[in-house]
Design a protein around this nucleic acid. Sequence first.
DNA 1: CTCCATCGTTTACATGCGTAATCGATTACA
DNA 2: TGTAATCGATTACGCATGTAAACGATGGAG
Lengths: 128, 128
Amino acid sequence: MADKPEHGERISEAEHAVMEVLWEKAPQSAQDVCDQVGALRDWSLPTVKTLLARLVTKQALTTERDGKRFLYSPVIARSDYVGTESRRLVDRLFGGRAAPLFAQLAKAEALSHDDIAEIEALLKELKS
Amino acid sequence: MADKPEHGERISEAEHAVMEVLWEKAPQSAQDVCDQVGALRDWSLPTVKTLLARLVTKQALTTERDGKRFLYSPVIARSDYVGTESRRLVDRLFGGRAAPLFAQLAKAEALSHDDIAEIEALLKELKS
DNA sequence: CTCCATCGTTTACATGCGTAATCGATTACA
DNA sequence: TGTAATCGATTACGCATGTAAACGATGGAG
């Protein structure tokens, strides 16, 4: 296979919040992103612009011109990001094994009935 | 219930590596920790001492005097740390639901046969 | 009792991150 | 056509982090 996504550096937590709104809908202007993300974090427009610029530098976003302004779109897929981050955690905390993670969540009562049902279904599918 | 463990601030990634060796065996001196952790990360003794000091400040470690030096022991349990970190990730990336995490790991082929078998066993236990 | 090795503590410094103001360019409107 | 609003870019700044050297105290060996 060719090059992996080649997503430059790591995406920080604040940057991730910005990515989320662009994964939800893209392309969007800085102003739009600011409004969207404002629902959760209370950031000023300059702050959001800084994060957007950093994400462009990190090659996580592309820009397309629209008159005076830019429209931003994700370059990396959410599933890639989520996959990388999940793997990182599993590697760091559970020696790369997913089962202990599961045990941990179970012990911490972090598994709802729905979760359990869904995981059961997933397992059944995996075995086929 | 009384106070939660009250573990002060967040433990960074480098600090976590130090915690791991102390969870493995405690108490240990700075020199010992340095040797242990040296297997994975190539840190100088001063570096390890800095991390130990920061962890004491963060109330993640306690010290007990042993002649000239200190012996360090974890204050917070590994399961607590691991639980908090797991929950953080699940909240941040999967809206607090564990099932999508498993779907993700499954899709990324991060689940070994052993994992699947173990999770299956755990599920059976949960349902009883 | 003296001196050296070894502690923990203090200080250091580059980088990344969170948060934001300012500035120069540009566009749209009057 | 001039000017006000707005855009992206540049600069800023404090705190956390990763990494480490320097320093001062102290305990053990001779």
